[in-house]
Nucleic acid binder design. Structure first.
Lengths: 342, 342
DNA sequence: TAGAAGCATGTCAACGTTGACACACGTTGA
DNA sequence: TCAACGTGTGTCAACGTTGACATGCTTCTA
């Protein structure tokens, strides 16, 4: 069987090219790596053989031989279809690509066990680094890898039981600002719609901001005004529940993007234009609504970019202490948050 | 240097574990692969050594030895941050994960050269399959790989100069339906806002539907009503241009999701509630606007899922002819498309 | 004109893993 | 009693590539 008639599915190797070009495999390797001291005719013959056979260097074998890790970075994210995370992922990918790094993506679907499974798998794949939006509550199992020099960067939420780099939004501040804004417009009963697992880091932090803003106005949290729902529909139902309570809220703080969309749906369906709304996380078209939706904007692109850049720094040998960086949020006033209490 | 004090950055190998457990590397390998005929005490010692050293099997080396390809599928996509593509990507990832396959993502940014570069790179990485939303106009270079049995599936747009599986939306039909809908509401001057590179497959197909629907009504395409803009802002500017023309359109067909958002922005800013609008591709909150946005919905989730399933079929040995599958679109009537011509 | 120097190429082993095969023990059965 | 068998383990080579080193040939120089 000559090299040109290899079995289905197999691909030519250096040796096949070597045979075809009548040189040694080492010489082919040199040509492919642009090493010096190759005569022009030899180079030519090798390149022609490469073209004839459709040869492609096996990066797996190469990386193994040269002791390199994979040229991919593992990215573990709860849900790629969520616009917040997809923008984060796009930013991570875009930044890593400037250095020739690829991204291996896996969704954890907010399942700690799944998260750990995919992370473990990625470690076995020899990824060059790990970027994680964590769902789990114990990342101690990554301690050894980190000590061995693997860059591990957490995004949107910090790690637990592990010192590692992290980039998060100013959740508490942002929420505080949002609720203070509503208070300034005369609201005293402000609903809170947050994530379903109330233990989720972002939900906890944002709730803290909600509570502290209320406290500053001398208002205690009324559990009847706190509801949950991660998906739009859950959040819409939660909004309906809140509004149909005995003493309903005059304003709603939706603590994440989907919650905000759900609240918008519910308010639109109920034609309640008198209820103020401030969302956490900006989204496309927020300004096209009437009234425009007032939000606390995060910087998903900045989060992703910063995480990728920290990966670069760590790959470049930065062995400094792990740092958690907080990215500022920004209140964008558009109308829905400025509806006054009736 | 014993195994526990290896240099920074290096990770223990089978041999390190073997030394630690006082057995041969082959035995460690057997334990890790759950091969039969390992005595209980040996297995125990090996597992303890593995735990002590924090050993993890090197998947790269393993795949090489067993001749397997990488357990990742390459996904090449124009822009992960575009909600249409992010949903597609999420569906691909979700489906592939059911079989333990990972996704390596690379953005092509609608650049054919970049697309080709990342595809070539992925082939070198020994990806198990390739899923591509193509921007290039020549995929002949993939012919050999396909012949060697590599599953290559195109998404959203078909390949050029290559027979390969593809999953696309019913672009022409959908556009035809959208424009016919507007015609039915009395519009005779209907604007078209599509992608910037007018050669883009989806833009061409949708334009065909636009033209044929007009033709059916005995109307010729008026170039003054055709504009472009891929990003929201471009599309918004295009909309403004159209509306300020001498004989402006009374309705707009926005041939992609960003174009539609741009048109919405422009109409909202100009407070033009008399202009009908139908968009191509559905989006969150489309029904929350007043009026709701009438769209031709695609099925991004279905596209991604179907592509991943075709990958499975091909991996399972399906050597049938390459097929292009067209997924139906669906007109969703919400109000903006039912504004009558004045 | 011999020895040094440089160029072009080749040989061998190794990266970390596992398939193929070998072997040293029991145990079993005629 | 010993051949046949089963069990647990080890040895070796190979996957496709490249680093280290070797070798043969040309060219230059004293």
């Amino acid at each position: 069987m000559n090299a040109r008639t290899r079995a289905h599915g197999s691909r030519p190797t250096l040796h096949d090219v070597a045979r075809e070009a009548q040189v040694s495999a080492r010489t082919v390797s040199r040509v492919l790596n642009d090493e010096p001291r190759i005569s022009a005719p030899t180079r030519e013959r090798v390149l022609q053989a490469v073209a004839r056979l459709g040869y492609r260097r096996n990066a797996m074998a190469r990386n193994m031989r040269v002791g390199a890790r994979d040229s991919a970075v593992g990215l573990v994210i709860p849900d790629l279809a969520n616009p917040f995370f997809s923008v984060v992922a796009a930013a991570v990918e875009r930044t890593l690509r400037t250095r020739g790094l690829y991204v291996v993506i896996a969704s954890s679907e907010e399942d700690p066990a799944r998260e750990r499974a995919v992370v473990t798998d990625m470690l076995g794949r020899q990824v060059a680094a790990l970027v994680v939006v964590p769902s789990g509550d114990d990342h101690a199992y990554l301690r050894l890898e980190r000590r061995r020099g693997l860059p591990v960067v957490f995004l949107d939420r910090p790690p637990n039981r592990l010192a590692a780099d992290a980039f998060v939004s100013a959740n508490t501040d942002g929420a505080h600002q949002a609720v203070t804004h509503l208070l300034a417009h005369g609201h005293r009963r402000i609903g809170f719609i947050g994530d379903r697992p109330t233990t989720l880091y972002t939900r906890r932090e944002r709730f803290r901001g909600y509570r502290s803003a209320l406290a500053q106005a001398g208002i205690a949290v009324d559990p009847a005004l706190v509801d949950r729902g991660h998906h739009e529909n859950d959040a819409a139902e939660a909004t309906v529940r809140l509004l149909s309570a005995v003493d309903p809220p005059t304003a709603v703080f939706a603590a994440n993007n989907l919650a905000c969309m759900g609240a918008m749906m519910a308010l639109a369906r109920a034609r309640r234009r008198d209820v103020a709304l401030v969302g956490f996380d900006d989204f496309t078209l927020a300004d096209v609504f009437d009234p425009g939706i007032t939000v606390v904007a995060q910087d998903p692109h900045g989060l992703g970019t910063a995480a990728a850049e920290r990966v670069f720094a760590r790959l470049d040998g930065d062995r400094g202490r792990a740092r958690t960086t907080v990215l500022a949020t920004r209140l964008i006033v558009r109308g829905s948050g400025e509806i006054s209490a009736s």
